[in-house]
Write a protein that binds this DNA or RNA. Structure first.
Lengths: 135, 135
DNA sequence: GTACAGGTTTACGTTAACGTTAATTACATT
DNA sequence: AATGTAATTAACGTTAACGTAAACCTGTAC
């Protein structure tokens, strides 16, 4: 956590490689108002805070948030950090996501049971074929 | 499980209401080769097996499968399984799907933990605000 | 018999999240 | 000087999964 960590700069390509996305995606996030890196000349220069932002964007995506939703959260945080309204809005969003995830869990468990059945039937029929009981 | 259960028929609008989707969606699934209901005249008539299919489609969607992927699974399931090669291919596919689902399960559990953290922090800060500790 | 609530096909429109050129700039190396 | 690598903007293209509008048929209710 030395001073240097916060002053390290990244080119767009470096960040792209690090997070395994394309530069186009990063520019797109900026275009959508999710980041605003500084420049040297016309080239984008990313600081650690930008890198953190990007990490948050990608995490949001993994959580199933749309870029618009991520932006909403960012905007709320940027304009009015730690206000009760913002916190409650965030709670509401996480509640919704939790419900979706819970449903997905149930679905996956059911599907796995069905896969068990399919597999069992397959193995049975294979066994019969091996026994020579071919219709 | 009487005989009648299997002979109950549904109009497209009934199924749409039951599953809270539009008739357009159901027709689209048919267009993509995911269902093939019978007809009376030009009207679609859905039997219980069609209803089950629709249920499976929607579950697949909730799981993050594309309609194309769902169709692949259906096709495999529908394929006449009397050749050892086909059976073994199907087993291989179900194994792959199982691995994917297992990964998804782990992901979701991790995400839920993260949501727990976010929520906990939110509630803490809210509590502080209520106590009057507003910076 | 006419209004209406359903169904039908055909076909163009929409949204999100980028992909994919194209044309240009700039720095580094050979 | 030429080549290579990475960056830039602008703008059109793409895919999935439907939405939506138009124009039509059709059985039941009044």
């Amino acid at each position: 956590m030395s001073k240097y960590d916060d002053e390290t700069t990244y080119a767009i390509g470096e960040l792209a490689r690090e997070f395994d996305i394309t530069p186009r995606s990063i520019r797109f996030y900026e275009e959508q108002g999710l980041m605003s890196p500084s420049r040297t000349g016309q080239n984008r220069v990313y600081l650690n805070k930008d890198r953190v932002r990007l990490k948050l964007i990608l995490r949001g995506k993994r959580l199933g948030f749309s870029l618009a939703e991520v932006k909403t959260l960012f905007d709320m945080y940027d304009t009015n950090p730690n206000s009760a309204i913002q916190l409650e809005a965030m709670l509401e969003m996480t509640e919704q996501k939790r419900a979706v995830l819970k449903q997905q869990l149930e679905d996956i468990q059911m599907l796995m049971t069905e896969l068990d059945d399919v597999e069992a039937r397959c193995r049975e029929e294979l066994a019969e074929l091996k026994r020579g009981n071919i219709a």
